[in-house]
Design a protein around this nucleic acid. Structure first.
Lengths: 186, 186
DNA sequence: AGGCGCATGTAAGCCGTTACATGATTCC
DNA sequence: GGAATCATGTAACGGCTTACATGCGCCT
């Protein structure tokens, strides 16, 4: 059986990553995608449900029906051993350089077309967005930093700590950049 | 005429931004999208040609047929005054916070599932990618930094300088993050 | 003779967003 | 009584990628 050995989609791997940390319903996965995974990847329920079906068909996850609200049966999904293997393969596989897609920078790139006050406001908006993100990341990190498992590289919280640290460093750099731009515009 | 006053798509605004800097053929726009715009936004020719038609229908760009190779007439596009206005409106408009979509961080987030040597290799790969990007940005910036127009906030090169400076700061922060991760894994 | 660069377009398919649809329980 | 939360699904649409298609001129 399980003839198709094609790597699951990026979304599929995101879901495997979530389920490898703890089993969930589709609904719950949608919420867990918002935060903290949503700091670097997003998906909504209308993508998640069909993807779970595909993963199950490929034998990478399975489900048990549990009791819960809603007109249809509530399903708790978990990764199978094949699913965990697929996740490991994906993590360890070579990956091409990903193109950056940053709408805010695209806008900045045409900032020369607007007048000074609008340009300053644009940079200020950008700055406040980065500041808000930084605050959120720091709060999230503070919530896990004391857990001893966050220092064990075989534990999920270790990886959470790494990614949050990255977000914090990136947003701090962006804040300094915004301050520098503000001084260049003055 | 020109009844529809809807803002063009993100791609449309990217093309208006390119054409506001200098008129181009569709083919040339595709090449200019690779670098340096490609550092924060990408598009290929199969997206660009239809989008140029839409922009022209909306009266935001127009074209003149010039001589050139190829089985069909070669068209040089330029922004109209309505197009420049649309670009300014878009730059100055309020924009919602954009979700981040970073496949490399998504992978890192499941790094706890693989063993130490693979984890180290993953971080090393990530580091070399950031280093390559940083080198490219620095070269690009060096190519424009001496131009006096790069200090005039009404000139395109000023905006180029801002965006490149942002890329450089972000990539430097990412490099330091990778070095920090390497030390955490050791 | 063959490959590359110029130059424009279309088609199929995947991925993602937004909206539609259903229905129970809990809180105000 | 109405809104929010739990819970699952489908449908329509738009954006992006990959591949198909054409054909001239230049360089090796």
């Amino acid at each position: 059986m399980s003839a198709s050995r094609s790597t699951p989609s990026n979304l599929g791997c995101a879901l495997l990553g979530l389920l490898a940390r703890s089993p969930s319903t589709g609904y719950d996965l949608a919420k867990r995608m918002e935060r903290p995974v949503g700091y670097f990847w997003t998906a909504n329920h209308s993508q998640i449900y069909p993807e779970l079906s595909r993963l199950e068909e490929a034998g990478l996850v399975d489900h048990t029906v549990i009791e819960g609200a809603g007109p249809r049966p509530t399903k708790r999904y978990a990764v199978t051993s094949a699913g965990l293997e697929a996740l490991r393969d994906w993590v360890a596989s070579e990956m091409e350089t990903q193109p950056v897609r940053d709408l805010e920078t695209l806008r900045l790139w045409s900032i020369w077309t607007v007048d000074a006050s609008e340009a300053e406001s644009l940079v200020a908006q950008s700055r406040s967005r980065h500041a808000a993100a930084l605050t959120a990341y720091e709060a999230e990190l503070a919530g896990i930093a004391d857990d001893p498992s966050a220092r064990d590289r075989t534990q999920p919280l270790f990886a959470s700590r790494l990614t949050l640290e990255g977000g914090i460093r990136t947003r701090r750099a962006a804040l300094e950049w915004c301050d520098w731009m503000a001084s260049e515009l003055a």
